[in-house]
Design a protein around this nucleic acid. Sequence first.
DNA 1: GGCTGTTATGCAACTTGTTGCAAAAGGGGG
DNA 2: CCCCCTTTTGCAACAAGTTGCATAACAGCC
Lengths: 187, 187
Amino acid sequence: MSLPHAILTALLEKPSSGLELARRFDKSIGYFWSATHQQIYRELGKLEQDGLIRALPAGAPARGQKKEYEVLPAGRDALTAWVSGSDAPRPVRDPLLLRLRAAAVVGTGGLEEELRRHLDLHRSQLAEYRAIEERDFPPERDGEEDRLRHAVLRGGIGLETFWTEWLAETLTALGERNEEKERKRRQ
Amino acid sequence: MSLPHAILTALLEKPSSGLELARRFDKSIGYFWSATHQQIYRELGKLEQDGLIRALPAGAPARGQKKEYEVLPAGRDALTAWVSGSDAPRPVRDPLLLRLRAAAVVGTGGLEEELRRHLDLHRSQLAEYRAIEERDFPPERDGEEDRLRHAVLRGGIGLETFWTEWLAETLTALGERNEEKERKRRQ
DNA sequence: GGCTGTTATGCAACTTGTTGCAAAAGGGGG
DNA sequence: CCCCCTTTTGCAACAAGTTGCATAACAGCC
């Protein structure tokens, strides 16, 4: 239910072709709702059929020919309705937590290296978000739109902060355990 | 790729029937990898076909008849391999963040109420996790398995903590804005 | 014996997301 | 002019997750 609304949002910000949307997803909306170009093309087709968007008139529409879309009033209305609707929070779904749980049963075979790898990735994502924050949200910008966009970015920052802290803690906890084992073995 | 491994883990912890698994998912593994009974039955079938688990012998297997499964050595091996494998961190996928972003374009129509509702839900989930922590992880328990399971739980606690803090902050930020508007209107 | 409720397994159809590849247009470079 | 590369759109097949419903055993009850 979310992808069509993600696309409507992106198209309202700026009318675009499928490929442009795919590229923009990769570096902004995709930070919290990713999509492949395939999904995007399919969804654009549906949205057009449902009369929520339309292709901008541009000669003969053909394969390999760029096709720009813009949002129709019905599309804007649908998005507005979705924003003020109500939904359950997404349940957590994380394979890494699952792997830790499995490790409690079959043993941690090299899992620590994986934790360190993830820690690095989350740290660099966090750094990227902080750079965006400094660039796009200086203290003087303070319209309602800015606050909302900033809140979203703070969400990303908060999540990455959580992961870096949790991974660091967990590595410490497992590391200590290993040191204990070493000590016992040497006795 | 994760569901079969979630099931293997649960079955190693205790051999069970499909429905028992579904119930256990609802109150432990499901906290970070949920699954419906449908998914579970389908996956049990596949795992049995692949020779990773087997049904415990119990009379005539028929519809409506309980069928217990246990993990075979090949299943344990597969799980071990998965634990020590490598995977990219899950990209964030959250409709609420998306709705905020959309709200920056079409306006926040009653979205604050939704934020408050989510805040309540996350608070009570957090309380539930903390209760589990006190019950299951007193300071003296400190085997490797306990540390791993505790780390997973701390993950859940950290995530819920993040959400409650972020939601509270965001509500404050939006509230202030509304107060400003009120003030201007009254001038 | 037949009704009802619970436990348990499962099929079918659908939606959403992923992967691999094909096809059309257009722009150089030799 | 032809070949190759890039851009752009798209099909097809699959994997994963959801929803609604059917089926069977069993137990209690009147």
